[in-house]
């Protein structure tokens, strides 16, 4: 590999954005997996994809439009679960197919942005613009702060929802916070690994951590560490071997899961 490439703006930008995303995914994923809400990332990624298509169709910044659409979609999923008394996965299926239908529809009426949209389908971290890096790092730090400021409440709610409610916690506020943080993280992930693989980013590191951790603090630490190793390692591998970064990231994450699982069995 060309040494100067390592320090090229392109590469550093990818590492910076990837690092921010890794932290947010690693922490958030633990709660999503333990709440049996892992598929919410899948549903929201489709909604975010519609947001990107809308942004491109309207000639607005696609990431910003996607964040707004995805935030609205996340709140709609909660509303459907609560008010229409739908099971969580059904509400997610409604939203995800609706999102994808909207994206397909927009593509059909405005054919000239198809190629650009494809970058969000498979992700393209090495093409990330400086403004997107600031946005990604800023939002990832916001999500991380959101989790740490509400850590005890989120743990209490995830472990024992009924007791948490009787203790006076506003669970609807915490639910909203969690899905909105997921929505933001998914949009960032869409840029990096794409619609088709973003669910893996929020689920695999947390699942790996659960193989080894003995308490919650360890789980959060290991999940963040595995997420960082997967994303940063994947970016480096993609550079060195000229691979698609999204595939390299998910392969690494799966490799870490396999090793964690084996370590658990040998322990």
């Amino acid at each position: 590999m060309n040494g100067s490439l390592i320090f090229s703006g392109l590469f550093l930008r990818a590492l910076l954005a990837g690092g921010g995303l890794a932290l947010a995914c690693g922490l958030l994923g633990v709660f999503l997996v333990l709440r049996r809400d892992a598929m919410i990332s899948h549903g929201l990624s489709h909604v975010a994809f519609a947001g990107v298509a809308l942004g491109l169709a309207l000639n607005l910044m696609p990431v910003i439009v996607a964040i707004l659409v995805c935030l609205a979609g996340s709140l709609l999923i909660l509303r459907l679960k609560e008010q229409a008394r739908l099971p969580g996965d059904t509400a997610i299926a409604l939203l995800s197919s609706g999102g994808l239908a909207l994206a397909v529809f927009l593509m059909s009426i405005k054919k000239d942005f198809g190629a650009e949209l494809m970058a969000y389908l498979f992700g393209d971290i090495l093409a990330i613009a400086p403004s997107e890096v600031y946005l990604a790092v800023g939002l990832a730090l916001l999500v991380t702060a959101g989790i740490f400021l509400n850590l005890s409440r989120l743990i209490f709610m995830t472990f024992d929802r009924e007791a948490a409610r009787v203790s006076g916690l506003s669970l609807s506020r915490l639910d909203r916070l969690l899905v909105m943080m997921t929505a933001v993280t998914i949009v960032l992930g869409l840029r990096i690994v794409g619609l088709l693989l973003v669910t893996g980013l929020t689920v695999i590191p947390a699942a790996s951590a659960l193989q080894l951790a003995r308490n919650f603090r360890q789980t959060l630490f290991l999940s963040s560490l595995f997420s960082l190793l997967s994303i940063l390692g994947g970016i480096v591998l993609a550079y060195v071997f000229n691979l698609p970064a999204s595939a390299a990231i998910i392969f690494l994450a799966l490799l870490i899961f396999s090793l964690s699982h084996l370590a658990k069995r040998w322990r």
């Binding site: 005890s152 409440r153 743990i155 209490f156 472990f159 948490a164 203790s167 006076g168 308490n215 919650f216």
Partner: peptide, 10 residues
Amino acid sequence: EVIAASLNSV
């Protein structure tokens, strides 16, 4: 952690 989560939340 079970007890701390509750103590810090209430």
